[in-house]
Simulated assay, not measured.
Amino acid sequence: MSLPPFQSAGLLTLGIELELMLLDPQTLELSAGALNLLDLMRMHADKRFFFCPEITQTMIEYNSGVHGRWHELLDELRAMRRYLLPLADECGLRISGGGTHAFRYWNDQEFFPKERYLDLGEKYGYLSKQFTVFGMHVHIGVGGDGDRAIELIRSVSPWIPLLIALSVASPFQDGFDTGFACSRLHSLTSFPYAGAMPPFADWAECRDYVDGLTGLGIVGSIKDFYWDIRPKSEFGTVEFRIFDTPLTVEIAAGLAGLVQLLCAYYLARPAPSPVYDVYPYNRFQACRYGLAGDMVDPWTGVRAGYLDMAKQLLDRLTPLAREFDAGKVLHVYREKLEPGLSQADHQRVVAADGGLSRLMRWQADCFASGAVASDGAAQTR
């Protein structure tokens, strides 16, 4: 199957896909409730919100609408949360954000009964069940231009590790602290064609590459490329795939707004190709240490901490804030950088105080309330 033509999409529009975990309210373990929950949603037939299954039955995915500004997305996400939580309660479920469940085991997972997911299970074996991790994908419209999409990916890719450091929320897996601020991405890098997208010169080169591997039967479609950032021609977007699912929809909308500003900046002033191949190092540092890590500037070779680099990036994006009504986004991130605490840091504080079951209950409380507190109490905004 050839890549579809690059579709027209509004320039710098944004939308997200949000993978959410389903929890048993008593045990706080993952609960295979996706079929029941999705059936209940079909009965309600509320066309405002679009939910779909994911690879295993302990997760669902929410697909947002297309928006021009981050606060419009936030309004939708809050309305979605008000819709979702009572339905989940009716099904005997709680909803949680976070990139991983702290004590899920891959062999306990059941595939959702959909042909694509069953095929992935046959193809990738136990790796497919280890794929029960939870991420957020941000889509940015590029105005229907495939060459512009490739140029944008090339320009923003050096900043992908910094975005990872700002969003880490998966320090625990299989009942243990992994030592990583983001362990979720390692569940993806085991798959073929994961990590950084090759440095294509233009859309034609990308299309020929994907079509060539599709023709060989190695991949079925662009969906089988687990790149950190990839073009989505059927949507007319560039898709950022590196975020752990945030603990709240408020954080989700803010991250999407930050990505929109980053894309606006580099669409106006494309960056030259990096001088140094430091992406793997920077990515590892972000996953391992989050904001406490450091990165090497791919153009100058200068090493700096992620906190300092984040402050520099926010300053660079500030002139765009008024145009995109995103002053609050930058203000919130500047406030976060002062203590330098990530979502993963908060998760570790809660787990140290109350254990992993308490952590999962707290994560569900955070999602329901819309706010994060490191003392283990989710406060409603």
Rank of each mutant, 00 (worst) to 15 (best):
residue 247 L to H: 06
residue 372 V to Q: 05
residue 368 A to E: 04
residue 297 D to K: 12
residue 185 L to A: 10
residue 40 L to P: 00
residue 160 I to M: 09
residue 12 L to F: 08
residue 93 L to S: 01
residue 184 R to H: 12
residue 214 T to K: 10
residue 40 L to F: 02
residue 331 H to G: 10
residue 145 D to K: 02
residue 101 H to N: 07
residue 139 H to Y: 12
residue 239 E to Q: 04
residue 346 H to P: 03
residue 136 M to S: 01
residue 51 F to S: 00
residue 333 Y to W: 15
residue 27 T to N: 00
residue 307 L to R: 15
residue 225 F to E: 04
residue 227 W to A: 10
residue 211 D to E: 13
residue 100 T to N: 13
residue 40 L to H: 03
residue 15 G to Q: 02
residue 51 F to M: 05
residue 82 R to K: 14
residue 68 G to M: 07
residue 197 M to T: 06
residue 365 D to I: 01
residue 356 L to D: 04
residue 276 Y to M: 14
residue 345 D to F: 08
residue 328 K to V: 09
residue 98 G to Q: 04
residue 296 V to W: 04
residue 233 S to T: 09
residue 329 V to L: 07
residue 179 G to E: 13
residue 366 C to S: 13
residue 360 M to D: 02
residue 210 V to F: 12
residue 156 V to E: 01
residue 185 L to R: 05
residue 291 L to M: 14
residue 86 P to S: 03
residue 98 G to D: 05
residue 259 V to R: 07
residue 256 A to W: 05
residue 144 G to D: 03
residue 13 T to G: 10
residue 152 L to Y: 00
residue 277 D to Q: 14
residue 35 L to G: 04
residue 251 I to G: 05
residue 277 D to M: 07
residue 56 T to Y: 00
residue 82 R to Q: 13
residue 205 E to I: 08
residue 120 L to R: 02
residue 244 D to L: 06
residue 207 R to Y: 08
residue 233 S to V: 03
residue 30 L to M: 03
residue 75 D to C: 13
residue 343 Q to A: 15
residue 200 F to P: 04
residue 139 H to A: 09
residue 270 P to S: 02
residue 310 A to V: 06
residue 113 P to V: 03
residue 208 D to H: 14
residue 286 A to I: 11
residue 372 V to A: 08
residue 264 A to K: 09
residue 253 A to L: 08
residue 176 F to C: 10
residue 246 P to E: 02
residue 160 I to Q: 01
residue 40 L to W: 00
residue 169 A to N: 12
residue 175 G to A: 02
residue 324 F to C: 05
residue 176 F to D: 10
residue 127 L to C: 07
residue 225 F to A: 07
residue 329 V to R: 03
residue 173 Q to I: 13
residue 203 W to S: 00
residue 337 L to I: 13
residue 131 F to A: 13
residue 314 L to A: 06
residue 343 Q to I: 13
residue 186 H to A: 15
residue 91 C to S: 01
residue 335 E to W: 09
residue 241 R to V: 08
residue 235 F to W: 11
residue 60 I to W: 00
residue 304 A to P: 06
residue 88 A to Y: 00
residue 46 D to V: 08
residue 53 P to S: 11
residue 306 Y to H: 15
residue 233 S to P: 12
residue 125 G to S: 07
residue 350 V to T: 06
residue 209 Y to V: 06
residue 77 L to Y: 06
residue 49 F to N: 07
residue 176 F to A: 13
residue 168 V to F: 03
residue 151 E to F: 00
residue 181 A to W: 01
residue 364 A to I: 07
residue 298 P to K: 04
residue 379 Q to V: 15
residue 262 L to V: 14
residue 56 T to P: 01
residue 314 L to T: 07
residue 63 N to R: 11
residue 137 H to N: 02
residue 22 L to R: 00
residue 299 W to S: 08
